[in-house]
Amino acid sequence: MLIIQFWVLSVLMLGSAVCVVVFRNAVNSAMSLVLSFLALSGLYVTLDAFFIGIIQVLVYAGAVMVLFLFIIMLLDLKVEARRTLNLAAVFGGLAVLAGFVFLIGQIVLSFPASGESFPALARTGYSDVSEVGVALFGNFNLPFQVIGVLLLVSTIGVVILSRRSLR
């Protein structure tokens, strides 16, 4: 059952990720990116990471993609006109990609743990939110506050960047 879920969600995620790269219209790309993120949150749920799955839907598929669509609509981008392709650059990019995929395959196949299935949990129904929350506010308290400062700095930075003149 889990393996069917895994393959359906992976094919959906990878297929819509390919659509993001292939589509010429930016709005279509953004909508396929939303689909890809939703399928990825389903994959997180198959890994018993419910909290991360919910966060993925809320933050990525919700907030980040709304921001992307807002900017695409704001800039009023037309469908990209076809330009002359630089063939050397395209072949170079594809060669880098082929090498990268080959390398990933080699590394994963030679990794000793990659043939293992996931060990069973001691009991089902862990409360993800409380466990992650305890780790977040206990062990990782300082990084959590640093992240808060980072969000504040990025908010101020966005306000300054989007002022009328950058003087």
Binding site: M13, L109, E116, F118
Partner: peptide, 14 residues
Amino acid sequence: MPLLGDYLIVSGFL
């Protein structure tokens, strides 16, 4: 059950 390597391959493709 899917293996750990399946997830790693999918992640690498992504």
